[in-house]
Design a protein around this nucleic acid. Structure first.
Length: 221
DNA sequence: ATTCTCTCCGCGATCTAATT
DNA sequence: AATTAGATCGCGGAGAGAAT
């Protein structure tokens, strides 16, 4: 226990709105806590009267309520920042997806044209006849076997390119799907911030504290 | 001037977990 | 099991600013 003098406690939590701050006269020994003994989490208040306990309770509750509000505000602020970041990323990925689809279509068209020029049948078997040899190879006087090899390697290159492009699109789509699911989880978290039936078993966010950007509690000192 | 909306705050009730 | 300190929730009052 410390001094027995009375102390004026001035509580102003919102500096920009200093409307009628609560001024209370509280005996110092009611609110001034000595450090807890090691291992102990709660202090005994046997040295206080019932009235002092009520007073202390009100004061502590007031501070706790303000702390809880600050904590909630910080959580919401962090969630909103994260939501904005994810929305921007989603837009970027959608644009990239469109661009990749366009490239894939262009490559597919080019591949079709090359197949037609080579006289390929639907099963993919190349039928090269002497009268179908290209004017380019005729001009270069390339042997028919050599022309066949070039045509085959061109075909293979384009097929591999098509395959890679489609693979990229598939991966991109699945990534987008995963991101959308995370975003919807975040939104539902915003809506049920204080619900007891929290849907995620593994919390996505770290707990409120000095490690967060928005840590700026307007605590009563 | 009055009404409406938003934000902040304090309080009582209730819940949770530590302590006796 | 009962008690109790601390945390959280929901409500209502007060003030500020916008809308009418």
């Amino acid at each position: 226990m410390t001094s027995l003098g009375r102390r004026t406690i001035l509580i102003t939590t919102v500096p920009q709105k200093p409307t009628s701050p609560v001024v209370m006269e509280v005996p110092a020994h009611v609110v001034e806590d000595e450090p807890l003994e090691p291992g102990r989490k709660r202090r005994r208040l046997t040295h206080l009267t019932q009235e002092e306990k009520m007073l202390r309770r009100k004061l502590k509750n007031r501070v706790a309520a303000q702390t809880a509000r600050d904590r909630k505000k910080a959580r919401m602020s962090d969630l909103e920042a994260e939501l904005n970041t994810m929305e921007r990323e989603n837009k970027r990925l959608q644009a990239e997806n469109i661009s990749l689809r366009q490239k894939s279509n262009a490559l597919f068209q080019e591949n079709q044209q090359l197949k037609e020029r080579l006289g390929q049948n639907p099963e993919g078997v190349v039928i090269l006849k002497k009268e179908h040899s290209s004017p380019e190879s005729a001009a270069l006087n390339l042997p028919q076997q050599q022309e066949k090899m070039i045509a085959l390697s061109l075909l293979m290159t384009h097929l591999v390119a098509c395959l890679m492009t489609w693979n990229m699109i598939f991966l991109d789509c699945s990534n987008n799907y995963r991101r959308k699911r995370v975003m919807s989880q975040q939104k539902s978290l915003l809506q049920t911030a204080h619900s007891n039936t929290f849907p995620c078993k593994q919390p996505l966010l770290t707990w409120w504290g000095p490690q967060q950007k928005s840590w700026n509690p307007s605590m009563n000192s």
